[in-house]
C-alpha cells in the first residue's frame, strides 16, 4: 500500500489542511507536497499554542502533524483534540514521525490519530495515506482511556485461549462443520440470475 493507483482521481481543491511541524524545512517539504496535490489551503503551524487556537476556531479537513514538536507536547495536543468538543475533534489526523524513542511508539498509538507515516516521507506515501484516511470506514471509539478510530484493523476473533472482549465475539467454540462444503456449482447458483415463471 505504498503507492496510490496512478489513475485514481481525487480532489483536494476545497480542502483546508493544517500542517504542524517544529522544523521550518520539514514544514516546507510537507507543504510543497500538499501544494502538488492541489490542496486548496495549507495552514502551517510551528508553535502549539498558535495551533491550539486555530483548531478551536475553525474546521480543517485534514491535519498532518509531527507530534514530537515541543518535546513531545504534540502527543498531548492530539489526545486533547480528540476529547474536545471543538470543530476538529473527528478531523482525520496523519502523524508523520521521524526516529521515534521506544516510549513514544505507544503514545503515538494512543493519541487517536488515523494513521502514522514514518519519515522520510515521499509524495507517493503521503498521498496514499491521505486517500486512505479519506475513505477510512473505521468507527470511532470513545472510552475513558481512548478516543479515536477503532485501532483493530483485523477481525480474526480473540487470540487462542482468550475470551473475547468485543460484544460481538462468540462466547462458545463454533465446533466442526457438520456438512461437506458446497460445490462450486452450488455457490455459482447463488449468484446466477435465472428466469422464473410465476
Amino acid at each position: 500500500m505504498s503507492t496510490p493507483d496512478p489513475n485514481a482521481v481525487f480532489n483536494l481543491t476545497k480542502a483546508s489542511v493544517l500542517v504542524v511541524e517544529q522544523s521550518q524545512h520539514s514544514l516546507d517539504v510537507t507543504s510543497q507536497m500538499l501544494k502538488g496535490f492541489g490542496a486548496g489551503e495549507i495552514v502551517r503551524g510551528e508553535a502549539l499554542a498558535e495551533v491550539e487556537k486555530r483548531v478551536e476556531s475553525r474546521p480543517f479537513e485534514l491535519i498532518v502533524i509531527d507530534p514530537s514538536i515541543e518535546d513531545g507536547r504534540g502527543y498531548h495536543f492530539l489526545t486533547a483534540l480528540r476529547r474536545s468538543a471543538g470543530p476538529n475533534a473527528y478531523t482525520p489526523v496523519i502523524i508523520v514521525s521521524g526516529h521515534v524513542r521506544s516510549a513514544d511508539v505507544a503514545r503515538a498509538r494512543d493519541t487517536g490519530a488515523n494513521y502514522v507515516v514514518t519519515k522520510p516521507i515521499s509524495p507517493a506515501v503521503l498521498l496514499q495515506r491521505i486517500l486512505y484516511v479519506g475513505r477510512d470506514r473505521r468507527q470511532f471509539v470513545q472510552t475513558p482511556t481512548y478516543v479515536g478510530p477503532d485501532r483493530r484493523f483485523k477481525f480474526e476473533g480473540p487470540p487462542p485461549g482468550c475470551e473475547g472482549r468485543r460484544s460481538t465475539d462468540l462466547k462458545a467454540p463454533i465446533g466442526a462443520a457438520e456438512e461437506p462444503n458446497m460445490s462450486e456449482a452450488e455457490l455459482e447458483a447463488f449468484f446466477k440470475p435465472q428466469r422464473v415463471s410465476l
Partner: peptide
C-alpha cells in the same frame, strides 16, 4: 469527516499527475 466528500468532488486530478507536481514542488 468532510474530507471524504471533498475527495470525491468532480474536477480533481489523477494521482500520477499529482505525484509529478509534488515531486517538482519539493
Amino acid at each position: 469527516p468532510r474530507l471524504k466528500a471533498l475527495l470525491a468532488e468532480p474536477g480533481g486530478m489523477r494521482a500520477s499527475d499529482a505525484l509529478r507536481r509534488a515531486d517538482r514542488a519539493v
